[in-house]
Design a protein around this nucleic acid. Structure first.
Length: 410
RNA sequence: GGAGGGGUUCCCGAGUGGCCAAAGGGGGCAGACUGUAAAUCUGUUGCGUCUCGCUUCGAAGGUUCGAAUCCUUCCCCCUCCA
C-alpha cells in the first residue's frame, strides 16, 4: 500500500499551523526518509497530556516511514524557556533531570519504536553543559542579531515585564540544538507548538548559515480545550501518562469527558484512527457523540497504558455510569487497617484519608451539600462512624457525580 | 547607586486601629437541569475537638486592651533616573 505523504498526513490530522518552505518540505518528505525532532522539557518525572501533541506528531511521522528524535531538554531546562511564561523557571538539579529523562524515555516507547535506531532519544545536556562560553559566543552568538531577536513575539511580550539575560539566551541554545542534531543525525525538521515558532526559525536559520543546507520547521496550533482551558489540566492537577500519578481509569475519564467540540480534533491528534473514521465520529451529534467520546477515551488510553488497562477502564466506566452499579476493579483503592481503628473510623476521617477531599472541614461541607455517597446512597449523617465489619466487602465512596474511590479493610 | 510605587487568602483585587477569616470578581467544589457534554441557575470556598478555639494579609521585632491596618529593621518586585 502506498503510504500517504507524511506532510499531508500531519496537515490533515491538524498538526499544522505554520511551516517553512511548505512545498519543499512536502517534497522532501515524499522523497526521502527524514529525521525530525521535537523537544520535551524534563521538568517532571513523567510526561503529561500537554506533551501528547509532540509525541503523536513524532509517532505519526514514524508510521509514515520517517525517523523521529525525541529530545529531552536536560540542558535547556536549566535555562527556562521564556515563551509564554511570566516567571523564571525554577532550576532542577542535574541528577533529577537525568532521572526524569529516563522516565520520559520509558513512556515514549509506548508510542514509538526505538529499536535499531528507528527512533532516537537524545538529551541536550550532553552538548549544552560542556559548552565553552567564549567559543559559543564566537560560533553561535555572532550569527544572531539582537534587533531581530527582539522582534520575535516571545520576547516582545516579555519586554514590558522584564526578561532576564539567561532567558534571552534560550533561543540561541534551542537553535544550537537543532544545529547539533543536523550535524550529527542529519536532522532536517523541527516541530513544536506554535509558541516555539521563533525558536524553531532561529534554528533553521542557523543551520542555513553555518551548514549551507535547508532545515525546516513546522508548528501546530497551541492546544486549548474548547472551553479555553489549558489542555491536560484538571482540578486535581495535570493528567499524567504515568499510571502511578494518574490512574488509567482517571486518564480514561479525562478523555471520556471531552467537550463535544473537541472530539473530532482530538481523535485526529491523539489516535491513529483513519481520518474518514475520525470525521464520521466527529460528525455525530447530540447524545450520539458519546460513542465517539468512548472511542476516543479507549484509543488514547490504549496507547498510554495498553489494551488491557484500557478495557478495564472502559468496563469500570460503563458499570459505574451506564449500569449504575458500584462494583468495579479499576477504581483507585485505599486500604484501611481495621485494627488501627478498633472503635471504627469516623466517615469524615475516612474521606480525608482517601484523598477525596483535603480536609475534614471540606468533607463536612460535602456532606452538608449532599455531595457524598456511600455505596450509592447519599450520606446525611455527618458524624457517621464506619465500624470494622460493617463492610467486609469494602465500600465505595463517591464525591459528586463522577469521582469514585474504593475502600477496603484488612 | 538615587527617587518614587508596591508585596492581602488558589489568582486578580478591595480593605489604612476594633463590626476582618478579610468586599467584589475569576477559578474550584457541590446541588438543580442534562448526554459522564456545554450553557444557565443555586449554594459553598483557611483549619479544628465547630454557637468556641487556632493559624493567615512579604519576614522579624515593637506600640496598643486590640494591628492586614501604626512604628522599626530586613527581604523581594515594579517604574523613572544613572
Amino acid at each position: 500500500m502506498k503510504t500517504m505523504n507524511a506532510f499531508d498526513l500531519l496537515k490533515e490530522r491538524g498538526f499544522f499551523k505554520q511551516v517553512t518552505f511548505e512545498e519543499e518540505l512536502r517534497k522532501t518528505l515524499a522523497e526521502e526518509k527524514v529525521t525530525a525532532y521535537v523537544g520535551f522539557d524534563p521538568t517532571a518525572d513523567s510526561l503529561h497530556v500537554g506533551h501528547l501533541m509532540g509525541i503523536m506528531a513524532l509517532a505519526h511521522l514514524q508510521r509514515a516511514g520517517h525517523r523521529p528524535i525525541a529530545l529531552v531538554g536536560g540542558g535547556t531546562v536549566m535555562i527556562g524557556d521564556p515563551s509564554g511564561r511570566t516567571e523564571l523557571r525554577t532550576m532542577l538539579s542535574k541528577e533529577v533531570i537525568a532521572q526524569n529523562a529516563e522516565a520520559i524515555k520509558a513512556q515514549l516507547t509506548h508510542y514509538m519504536d526505538f529499536s535499531n535506531d528507528r527512533a532516537l532519544l537524545v538529551n541536550n545536556a550532553d552538548w549544552i553543559l560542556p559548552l565553552n562560553y567564549i567559543e559559543f559566543l564566537r560560533e553561535i552568538g555572532s550569527q544572531f542579531s539582537v534587533n531581530r531577536m527582539l522582534t520575535a513575539e516571545c520576547f516582545r511580550s516579555r519586554m514590558e515585564r522584564g526578561l532576564s539575560f539567561i532567558e534571552f539566551n534560550y533561543m540561541l541554545l534551542q537553535a544550537y540544538d537543532f544545529l547539533v542534531l543536523n550535524r550529527k543525525y542529519g536532522c532536517k525538521l523541527q516541530m513544536g507548538g506554535d509558541d516555539q515558532w521563533s525558536n524553531i526559525l532561529a534554528g533553521a536559520d542557523l543551520i542555513r548559515r553555518l551548514e549551507e543546507t535547508t532545515a525546516y520547521g513546522l508548528t501546530w496550533p497551541l492546544l486549548t480545550t474548547a472551553s479555553g482551558k489549558k489542555m491536560g489540566k484538571t482540578e486535581a492537577g495535570s493528567v499524567w501518562l504515568d499510571p502511578k500519578k494518574t490512574t488509567p481509569f482517571d486518564f480514561y475519564q479525562y478523555w471520556r469527558n471531552t467537550h463535544d467540540d473537541d472530539v473530532e480534533r482530538f481523535l485526529g491528534y491523539f489516535t491513529f484512527l483513519p481520518m474518514d473514521e475520525v470525521k464520521r465520529l466527529g460528525a455525530l451529534r447530540g447524545q450520539e457523540i458519546n460513542e465517539a467520546k468512548k472511542i476516543l477515551a479507549y484509543e488514547v488510553t490504549k496507547l498510554a497504558h495498553g489494551e488491557e488497562e484500557a478495557k478495564k477502564a472502559q468496563k469500570t466506566a460503563e458499570a459505574l455510569f451506564e449500569a449504575g452499579k458500584v462494583s468495579a476493579s479499576a477504581l483507585p483503592v485505599t486500604m484501611v487497617t481495621a485494627t488501627d481503628y478498633p472503635e471504627g473510623i469516623p466517615l469524615l476521617d475516612l474521606v480525608v484519608l482517601t484523598g477525596l477531599v483535603p480536609s475534614k472541614k471540606e468533607a463536612r461541607r460535602m456532606i452538608d451539600q449532599r455531595g457524598l455517597y456511600l455505596n450509592d446512597e447519599v450520606v446525611t449523617e455527618v458524624q457517621r462512624v464506619i465500624r470494622p465489619g460493617d463492610y467486609p466487602e469494602g465500600l465505595i465512596l463517591q464525591k459528586g457525580k463522577k469521582i469514585f474511590h474504593k475502600v477496603e479493610f484488612k
